[in-house]
Design a protein around this nucleic acid. Sequence first.
DNA 1: ACTGATTTGTGCGTATGTATC
DNA 2: TGATACATACGCACAAATCAG
Lengths: 264, 264
Amino acid sequence: MLERSESQSPSNRLPDRLPDQLSNRPSRRLPRTPLWRRIALDIKAAIAAGEWRAGDKLPPEGDLAARFNANRHTIRRAVGALAEEGLLLVEQGRGTFVVEETINYQIGARTRFGENLRDHDRKVDVEILAVEEVFVGRDIANPLEVAAGSLCVRLQVLRRSDGKPLCIADHWFPGERFRPMAGLFAETKSITRSFAALGIADYKRRETQVAARLPKTWEAAKLEIPRTRPLIVTSSINADPTGTVIEYGVTRFAGDRTAIVFES
Amino acid sequence: MLERSESQSPSNRLPDRLPDQLSNRPSRRLPRTPLWRRIALDIKAAIAAGEWRAGDKLPPEGDLAARFNANRHTIRRAVGALAEEGLLLVEQGRGTFVVEETINYQIGARTRFGENLRDHDRKVDVEILAVEEVFVGRDIANPLEVAAGSLCVRLQVLRRSDGKPLCIADHWFPGERFRPMAGLFAETKSITRSFAALGIADYKRRETQVAARLPKTWEAAKLEIPRTRPLIVTSSINADPTGTVIEYGVTRFAGDRTAIVFES
DNA sequence: ACTGATTTGTGCGTATGTATC
DNA sequence: TGATACATACGCACAAATCAG
């Protein structure tokens, strides 16, 4: 836990020289900005420059003290200011982190994936991970309101926002009627448009369940998060205007990059 | 990893006796049920008898093989069937678990904590962890729609359902008007009733944000979960009929015991 | 970041009982 | 009776995921 190398003995009460920063100020008379404030700006600049990115852990206060040639108390003041600003997050015993810009993913009865994020000037991108026809088990058959063992279409996609993985979604579509979905989605890259091609002009989200769990290895890899960071898992049922279920979806969001917002 | 003691040498091509199970069949001619199916029933019975309870980990397949005097493949078949039924959950590298009955916590515009769970014949219980008057920072002031540094009331409670910790909730109430909340809640054990005592007959949940993260040590302790299991964190804003914000709440649920359900 | 131990997943080979033609 | 196909069961080996140190 060594703070600085100098003045280790308590007898040495007075520093033998001024800290570098004080002599390092602009040539004359200009209103000097406090050291902690300059350090705060430096840290901010370093983050802006990409040295530490959203979610990264800053070096321990001791290391920062060495780097900026200041006392740990001074560092704490700078970090405290940035934390108050909301740029940093300080956690006792863990460290100091650059707060992640969380994406607020709005969910309502008429949530459509594409529209949701386009408002935020984000580039949305879809990668198809799997398309297949499967005989579904009870877990999928129940929400789809079909018999267990029915033939259904499964579509698994990875959605990115600004190039960063946002979520992995599994979509199930019930029965023969939706066999063309596989091809349609590959073409349109949109579930809404694929539905439209099948003559379904409108549909509504009936209910959404939210849970949290840790990712499996492949999920963590695809979402580019550590395996120790939790997922938000939403399960939702979409029905056409007659009330027939036309899709059941399970979506996994990177838990610390995303917040799901429900309006009521 | 000894499977069976017999016939370890590959030179011994022919088993010297019939496997136990085949000679072990019902006395005569009755249609014999396959071993894997009988084992599945045995496991089911053991769970029903309370030998393994919801959330428990079953012994490894090897141990089960020894116990049921069968090959691991046979055990896997039995376990696979029960997993398909939804009674067991198999996780590679971790083990096989009896599925937990997850609590579906319904959220809508008029969600009231007490009413939510009483329907399920659960005993609801509230423990007050903290009550205080605080000058709130930006993070709380913003959703409450008051100035940063305002005096507010903070109430932190641990809610149990059937004795098991369900969630930790922080409630903030804005300004002078709600100073009596501290005492009122201690008396009524209910936010709705406390509001009523203050002349607020009705209020609505305006919006709810859902996120996930790992618990801090004290949260894990209070919720009685390991630190490696994620929390579901909901943040919600409640407003009275005039639209004035009267409460901001942050609630942490045990992620693997709970699913939050939103209707739309 | 690595290691070894634990546990499930998968594939191959063998043997035997059962149903069908 | 025999040929064939399928379901059941055992044995072995290694891959893959998880976890504790």
